[in-house]
């Protein structure tokens, strides 16, 4: 009887110590759901995962990175940004590359494949409206950016749309359209 009581008391003491010890910290990084995504699974915003098969067509992003030497210095925008800034819905395109510089130089690249002809009509209008708004926004506020955006225009080949502003816009646009 006394042995059993001793065992019960020991077990209860151990349980009590364990319960108190598990609440010594308010937060540990491992407890949060916001831990950084491991690098090997992270995919940059606004991009598709790089193709692993040599036969898989290049993504628009990789083609833009090839055509524009400063692409990797630019901020990559997402499909959400495209929706908010241009009103183009995710179902209207099948691939996207959308970038801006982190300053106010007016440097910008938008390239996307329309999902179909119907979407292409809306995309064309949306890109031209967006370009007009950017020019209006920068006309008095950022004259250098306005000069750059003034020379930009929307180009299309098949279902591919390209809007590039910057010093090498013409060559970069030609390089992207050449692949069609």
């Amino acid at each position: 009887m006394k042995k059993m009581l001793s065992v019960i008391l020991v077990c209860f003491s151990v349980l009590l110590l364990t319960a108190c010890g598990s609440r010594t910290a308010a937060v540990t990084p491992a407890e949060t759901a916001s831990a950084a995504v491991p690098a090997e699974t992270a995919v940059p915003a606004g991009t598709e995962a790089p193709a692993e098969n040599a036969d898989t067509p290049q993504t628009l992003l990789s083609r833009v990175e090839t055509a524009a030497s400063d692409a990797k210095d630019l901020a990559y925008f997402t499909g959400d940004d495209l929706l908010d800034l241009l009103g183009i819905e995710p179902g209207e395109y099948t691939d996207l590359a959308f970038m801006q510089d982190t300053g106010m130089s007016g440097r910008e690249i938008i390239a996307l494949y329309a999902a179909d002809e119907e979407s292409a009509g809306h995309i064309s209008q949306a890109l031209n409206d967006y370009l007009e708004r950017r020019r209006d926004e920068t006309r008095n506020y950022a004259p250098e950016a306005y000069q750059v955006l003034s020379k930009a225009h929307v180009e299309r080949k098949n279902l591919l749309f390209v809007l590039i502003s910057g010093p090498d816009a013409e060559a970069e646009t030609a390089a992207l359209l050449a692949g069609e």
């Binding site: 950084a36 995504v37 995919v43 940059p44 915003a45 901020a75 990559y76 106010m104």
Partner: peptide, 16 residues
């Protein structure tokens, strides 16, 4: 707008 662009640039290597 500039801070947004800075955050987007950082998100290329750190999506979170």
């Amino acid at each position: 707008c500039m801070f947004r662009n800075y955050v987007r640039a950082r998100q290329k290597t750190d999506p979170q």
